[in-house]
Protein backbone atom coordinates (compact mmCIF):
# COMPACT_ATOMS: atom_id res chain seq x y z
CA UNK A 1 0.00 0.00 0.00
CA UNK A 2 1.43 3.32 -1.02
CA UNK A 3 1.51 5.84 1.78
CA UNK A 4 3.58 8.75 0.53
CA UNK A 5 3.21 9.69 -3.12
CA UNK A 6 5.14 12.58 -4.70
CA UNK A 7 4.44 13.58 -8.29
CA UNK A 8 6.57 16.06 -10.18
CA UNK A 9 7.55 18.07 -7.08
CA UNK A 10 9.43 21.23 -8.01
CA UNK A 11 11.12 23.94 -6.02
CA UNK A 12 13.23 26.88 -7.02
CA UNK A 13 14.73 29.72 -5.03
CA UNK A 14 14.50 32.68 -7.38
CA UNK A 15 16.35 31.69 -10.52
CA UNK A 16 17.94 28.68 -8.86
CA UNK A 17 16.13 25.44 -9.69
CA UNK A 18 16.68 23.01 -6.85
CA UNK A 19 14.10 20.31 -7.52
CA UNK A 20 13.15 19.81 -11.14
CA UNK A 21 10.25 17.41 -10.86
CA UNK A 22 10.81 14.64 -8.32
CA UNK A 23 8.36 11.74 -8.24
CA UNK A 24 8.56 8.93 -5.74
CA UNK A 25 6.47 6.54 -3.66
CA UNK A 26 6.95 5.05 -0.22
CA UNK A 27 4.86 2.02 0.73
CA UNK A 28 3.65 1.07 4.20
CA UNK A 29 6.46 -0.49 6.23
CA UNK A 30 8.95 0.22 3.51
CA UNK A 31 12.43 1.67 4.01
CA UNK A 32 13.24 3.96 1.10
CA UNK A 33 16.38 6.02 0.58
CA UNK A 34 17.05 9.12 -1.45
CA UNK A 35 20.63 9.12 -2.58
CA UNK A 36 22.27 12.03 -4.25
CA UNK A 37 25.36 14.19 -4.46
CA UNK A 38 25.88 16.95 -1.89
CA UNK A 39 23.83 20.03 -2.59
CA UNK A 40 21.37 18.15 -4.79
CA UNK A 41 18.39 19.45 -2.86
CA UNK A 42 17.73 16.39 -0.72
CA UNK A 43 17.19 18.43 2.41
CA UNK A 44 14.98 20.86 0.49
CA UNK A 45 12.73 17.92 -0.30
CA UNK A 46 12.39 17.16 3.41
CA UNK A 47 11.60 20.76 4.15
CA UNK A 48 8.81 20.59 1.61
CA UNK A 49 7.49 17.45 3.29
CA UNK A 50 7.55 18.93 6.80
CA UNK A 51 5.92 22.11 5.55
CA UNK A 52 8.89 24.37 6.29
CA UNK A 53 8.92 25.32 2.58
CA UNK A 54 6.24 25.53 -0.08
CA UNK A 55 6.80 24.04 -3.52
CA UNK A 56 4.86 22.96 -6.58
CA UNK A 57 3.62 19.55 -7.58
CA UNK A 58 1.50 16.97 -5.87
CA UNK A 59 2.31 15.52 -2.45
CA UNK A 60 -0.20 12.98 -1.18
CA UNK A 61 -0.32 10.80 1.89
CA UNK A 62 -2.68 7.81 2.03
CA UNK A 63 -4.33 9.24 -1.04
CA UNK A 64 -5.17 12.62 0.47
CA UNK A 65 -3.22 15.86 -0.02
CA UNK A 66 -0.37 16.07 2.49
CA UNK A 67 -1.18 17.96 5.66
CA UNK A 68 1.41 18.68 8.45
CA UNK A 69 1.79 16.17 11.29
CA UNK A 70 2.49 13.03 9.28
CA UNK A 71 6.22 12.82 9.79
CA UNK A 72 8.66 12.42 12.63
CA UNK A 73 11.76 14.23 11.49
CA UNK A 74 15.33 13.45 12.52
CA UNK A 75 17.69 16.23 11.44
CA UNK A 76 21.27 15.92 10.20
CA UNK A 77 23.01 16.57 13.45
CA UNK A 78 21.29 15.10 16.46
CA UNK A 79 19.79 18.47 17.52
CA UNK A 80 19.63 17.32 21.12
CA UNK A 81 18.98 20.23 23.46
CA UNK A 82 22.01 20.47 25.75
CA UNK A 83 19.86 21.97 28.51
CA UNK A 84 17.50 19.00 28.67
CA UNK A 85 18.38 15.66 30.17
CA UNK A 86 18.35 12.74 27.76
CA UNK A 87 14.91 11.58 28.84
CA UNK A 88 13.49 15.08 28.46
CA UNK A 89 14.99 15.31 25.00
CA UNK A 90 13.29 12.04 24.16
CA UNK A 91 9.92 13.33 25.36
CA UNK A 92 10.17 16.61 23.46
CA UNK A 93 7.92 15.62 20.57
CA UNK A 94 5.25 14.26 22.89
CA UNK A 95 5.35 17.44 24.96
CA UNK A 96 4.93 19.56 21.84
CA UNK A 97 1.89 17.41 21.02
CA UNK A 98 0.48 18.50 24.37
CA UNK A 99 1.30 15.55 26.58
CA UNK A 100 2.25 16.25 30.21
CA UNK A 101 5.96 15.83 30.82
CA UNK A 102 5.37 13.18 33.46
CA UNK A 103 3.15 11.08 31.26
CA UNK A 104 5.58 11.46 28.39
CA UNK A 105 8.46 10.30 30.61
CA UNK A 106 6.52 7.23 31.64
CA UNK A 107 5.82 6.46 28.01
CA UNK A 108 9.44 6.89 26.90
CA UNK A 109 11.38 5.38 29.81
CA UNK A 110 10.76 1.70 28.95
CA UNK A 111 12.34 2.23 25.51
CA UNK A 112 15.75 3.29 26.82
CA UNK A 113 17.09 -0.25 27.10
CA UNK A 114 16.22 -1.11 23.51
CA UNK A 115 18.01 2.02 22.35
CA UNK A 116 21.13 1.18 24.35
CA UNK A 117 20.61 4.11 26.66
CA UNK A 118 19.58 2.36 29.87
CA UNK A 119 20.98 4.16 32.89
CA UNK A 120 21.47 7.41 30.96
CA UNK A 121 17.95 8.77 31.36
CA UNK A 122 19.15 11.50 33.70
CA UNK A 123 22.42 12.22 31.89
CA UNK A 124 23.00 15.43 29.96
CA UNK A 125 23.48 15.04 26.19
CA UNK A 126 27.05 16.29 26.55
CA UNK A 127 27.83 13.23 28.62
CA UNK A 128 26.92 10.86 25.78
CA UNK A 129 29.13 9.55 23.01
CA UNK A 130 28.34 10.37 19.39
CA UNK A 131 26.59 7.05 18.77
CA UNK A 132 24.52 7.36 21.93
CA UNK A 133 23.47 10.86 20.95
CA UNK A 134 22.21 9.58 17.59
CA UNK A 135 20.30 6.79 19.27
CA UNK A 136 18.75 9.31 21.65
CA UNK A 137 17.79 11.44 18.66
CA UNK A 138 16.21 8.44 16.95
CA UNK A 139 14.37 7.57 20.14
CA UNK A 140 13.02 11.13 20.26
CA UNK A 141 11.91 10.68 16.66
CA UNK A 142 10.15 7.32 16.88
CA UNK A 143 8.26 7.94 20.15
CA UNK A 144 6.24 10.62 18.37
CA UNK A 145 4.36 7.73 16.74
CA UNK A 146 3.88 9.53 13.47
CA UNK A 147 2.98 7.69 10.30
CA UNK A 148 6.45 7.93 8.81
CA UNK A 149 10.07 8.63 9.75
CA UNK A 150 12.11 11.21 7.85
CA UNK A 151 15.81 10.63 8.49
CA UNK A 152 18.09 13.38 7.14
CA UNK A 153 21.63 11.95 6.96
CA UNK A 154 21.34 10.78 10.55
CA UNK A 155 24.85 9.33 10.75
CA UNK A 156 26.67 11.89 8.63
CA UNK A 157 28.48 13.48 11.56
CA UNK A 158 29.77 10.24 13.09
CA UNK A 159 33.20 8.68 12.67
CA UNK A 160 33.35 5.76 10.25
CA UNK A 161 33.37 2.97 12.83
CA UNK A 162 30.55 4.38 14.91
CA UNK A 163 28.59 5.01 11.73
CA UNK A 164 28.96 1.37 10.64
CA UNK A 165 27.83 0.18 14.08
CA UNK A 166 24.87 2.54 14.02
CA UNK A 167 23.83 1.41 10.54
CA UNK A 168 23.79 -2.23 11.64
CA UNK A 169 21.91 -1.29 14.79
CA UNK A 170 19.33 0.69 12.82
CA UNK A 171 18.84 -2.26 10.47
CA UNK A 172 18.02 -4.60 13.37
CA UNK A 173 15.78 -1.97 14.93
CA UNK A 174 13.94 -1.51 11.65
CA UNK A 175 13.52 -5.26 11.24
CA UNK A 176 11.66 -5.51 14.54
CA UNK A 177 9.59 -2.33 14.13
CA UNK A 178 9.04 -2.04 10.37
CA UNK A 179 8.74 1.71 10.44
CA UNK A 180 7.77 3.38 7.20
CA UNK A 181 10.90 5.42 6.63
CA UNK A 182 12.45 7.80 4.14
CA UNK A 183 16.20 8.25 4.52
CA UNK A 184 18.32 10.94 2.92
CA UNK A 185 21.95 10.04 2.50
CA UNK A 186 24.94 10.43 0.25
CA UNK A 187 26.49 7.26 1.61
CA UNK A 188 25.88 4.55 -1.02
CA UNK A 189 26.76 1.72 1.34
CA UNK A 190 24.39 3.01 3.98
CA UNK A 191 21.57 3.22 1.44
CA UNK A 192 22.14 -0.32 0.19
CA UNK A 193 22.44 -1.75 3.69
CA UNK A 194 19.24 -0.18 4.97
CA UNK A 195 16.83 0.26 2.07
CA UNK A 196 14.19 -1.71 0.28
CA UNK A 197 14.37 0.77 -2.57
CA UNK A 198 16.69 3.62 -3.47
CA UNK A 199 15.95 6.72 -5.53
CA UNK A 200 19.11 8.12 -7.05
CA UNK A 201 18.95 11.88 -7.62
CA UNK A 202 20.95 13.87 -10.14
CA UNK A 203 23.01 16.91 -9.24
CA UNK A 204 21.06 20.14 -8.96
CA UNK A 205 18.43 20.70 -10.30
CA UNK A 206 17.51 17.34 -8.86
CA UNK A 207 15.42 14.73 -10.59
CA UNK A 208 15.22 11.01 -10.10
CA UNK A 209 17.73 9.46 -12.50
CA UNK A 210 17.33 5.91 -11.32
CA UNK A 211 15.30 3.74 -9.03
CA UNK A 212 17.03 0.72 -7.56
CA UNK A 213 15.32 -2.10 -5.68
CA UNK A 214 17.43 -3.90 -3.09
CA UNK A 215 15.80 -7.33 -2.69
CA UNK A 216 18.48 -8.74 -0.40
CA UNK A 217 17.40 -10.62 2.75
CA UNK A 218 18.11 -9.09 6.14
CA UNK A 219 20.28 -8.72 8.11
CA UNK A 220 22.50 -7.84 5.21
CA UNK A 221 25.80 -8.07 7.05
CA UNK A 222 25.39 -11.74 7.78
CA UNK A 223 27.21 -13.59 5.02
CA UNK A 224 29.95 -13.02 2.49
CA UNK A 225 27.57 -13.85 -0.34
CA UNK A 226 25.18 -11.11 0.74
CA UNK A 227 28.05 -8.66 1.09
CA UNK A 228 29.14 -9.44 -2.50
CA UNK A 229 25.65 -8.86 -3.86
CA UNK A 230 25.38 -5.62 -1.92
CA UNK A 231 28.76 -4.53 -3.26
CA UNK A 232 27.58 -5.12 -6.83
CA UNK A 233 24.54 -2.93 -6.26
CA UNK A 234 26.70 -0.26 -4.66
CA UNK A 235 29.04 -0.26 -7.64
CA UNK A 236 26.14 0.19 -10.03
CA UNK A 237 24.76 3.12 -8.06
CA UNK A 238 28.17 4.75 -7.81
CA UNK A 239 28.57 4.55 -11.58
CA UNK A 240 25.24 6.30 -12.00
CA UNK A 241 26.18 8.99 -9.48
CA UNK A 242 29.58 9.59 -11.02
CA UNK A 243 28.10 9.79 -14.50
CA UNK A 244 29.61 6.62 -15.99
CA UNK A 245 27.64 4.26 -18.18
CA UNK A 246 26.00 1.83 -15.80
CA UNK A 247 27.33 -1.71 -15.68
CA UNK A 248 24.66 -4.31 -16.26
CA UNK A 249 23.14 -5.67 -13.13
CA UNK A 250 20.01 -7.76 -13.25
CA UNK A 251 17.00 -5.56 -12.73
CA UNK A 252 14.92 -6.69 -9.87
CA UNK A 253 11.16 -6.48 -10.05
CA UNK A 254 9.99 -3.39 -8.26
CA UNK A 255 7.97 -3.86 -5.15
CA UNK A 256 4.53 -2.39 -5.21
Amino acid sequence: MTRLELRDVRKSFGALDVLAGVSLDVGAGEFVSILGPSGAGKSTLFQLLTGALKGEGSMRFDGAPLDGARFAFMPQRDALMPWRRVIDNATLGLEVQGMKRRTARERVAPLFAEFGLAGFERAWPAELSGGMRQRAALLRTVVQQRDMLLLDEPFGALDALTRAAMQRWLETMWQSHRWTALLITHDVREAVLLSDRIYVLSARPARVVREVAVPLPRPRTESAALARQAAAIEAGILDTLLGQPPIRIPDHPMES
Binding site: F115, G116, W124, E127, A165
Partner: peptide
Protein backbone atom coordinates in the same frame (compact mmCIF):
# COMPACT_ATOMS: atom_id res chain seq x y z
CA UNK B 1 20.82 27.58 36.37
CA UNK B 2 22.98 25.73 33.84
CA UNK B 3 24.05 22.43 35.40
CA UNK B 4 24.55 20.92 31.95
CA UNK B 5 27.40 23.29 31.23
CA UNK B 6 29.71 21.58 33.70
CA UNK B 7 28.59 18.16 32.50
CA UNK B 8 29.65 19.21 29.03
CA UNK B 9 33.12 20.19 30.14
CA UNK B 10 33.71 17.07 32.20
CA UNK B 11 32.13 14.31 30.16
CA UNK B 12 32.83 15.30 26.56
CA UNK B 13 33.82 12.59 24.07
CA UNK B 14 33.70 9.89 26.63
CA UNK B 15 35.03 6.69 25.05
CA UNK B 16 33.74 4.46 27.84
CA UNK B 17 30.19 5.43 26.90
CA UNK B 18 30.50 4.06 23.38
CA UNK B 19 28.43 0.95 23.82
CA UNK B 20 27.26 -1.35 21.11
CA UNK B 21 23.53 -1.42 20.56
Amino acid sequence: AMPWERAGRDGKSDPSNEGRP
